[in-house]
């Protein structure tokens, strides 16, 4: 009798998953404690200064996390930054089909690499918003009382709009994760070949050693395919 064989593909290593979930924790902390200063029904969280203290602790972790990752993984960080700001013809073609993808149709879309064009946009937007939300947040924190009536609202508006971008991107990220059953990639680190074929066909092709005319990428990103006895 032959045992059933399940193939699964490594997508995120433990360190990447740890950074991701720490990031989720800090963003949620910042979001809830920040909303307390924006949305009156949540303002009780900020009373007495508990919320703002948590906000500052979350902010320090939020800002330190990418720097820590970049220090430990400089090459991957550089490659990621290049990747999220590089869009080829297939990416633009994929983006044209975004409304259909939003409504659950992934089949027949132009094949995507390790990150699809939507993920690239998400990461790029988060990266840019990270810079503006951090700078405006630092100004609101350390220049408190000396910003004046003109710069306070400028910095606060920049902070609000940046966090709006982070929030909308976060909501979209969660949405697509659950629509396309992508959560296991960040919990176990592995995805099924079906998922990879449908969502990241070009990446799967690059991972397969027998793939014709595909160069092995010089990267430390996960490239192993693990075959497991079920």
């Amino acid at each position: 009798m032959t045992a059933a064989v399940e193939t699964r593909i490594l997508r995120y290593r433990p360190r990447q998953r740890l950074v991701h979930w720490l990031g989720v924790g800090t963003v949620l902390t910042l979001l809830v404690t920040g909303l307390a200063l924006l949305w009156p029904p949540l303002s009780f969280i900020a009373w007495g200064g508990v919320g703002p203290t948590l906000h500052r602790v979350g902010a320090v972790l939020f800002m330190a996390l990418p720097f820590a990752y970049a220090l430990l993984n400089p090459r991957q960080t550089r490659e990621l930054l290049v990747e999220i700001f590089t869009y080829d013809r297939e990416d633009w073609a994929w983006l044209k089909h975004f409304p259909g993808y939003f409504l659950g149709h992934a089949a027949g879309l132009p094949p995507q690499g390790r990150l699809n064009a939507g993920q690239k946009l998400h990461h790029a937007g988060t990266f840019l918003a990270f810079i503006t939300v951090s700078l405006s947040g630092l100004a609101l924190w350390f220049l408190k009382g000396s910003l004046g009536a003109t710069w306070l609202p400028v910095m606060a508006m920049l902070h609000d709009v940046s966090m709006l971008a982070v929030t909308v991107l976060f909501v979209g990220h969660v949405y697509f994760t659950f629509v396309y059953d992508a959560l296991p990639a960040m919990t176990t680190g592995y995805v099924s070949p079906e998922y990879a074929r449908l969502e990241h066909a070009r990446w799967l092709e690059e991972l397969t050693p027998a793939a014709p005319a595909v160069e092995t990428p010089e990267t430390d990103e996960p490239t192993e395919i693990v075959v497991q006895q079920a």
Binding site: S43, G48, P52, K144, G145, L147, L152
Partner: peptide, 12 residues
């Protein structure tokens, strides 16, 4: 009791 210590009023 409701003051969060944000300091917005100081600037405004």
């Amino acid at each position: 009791a409701k003051c969060s210590g944000c300091g917005y009023c100081v600037d405004a």
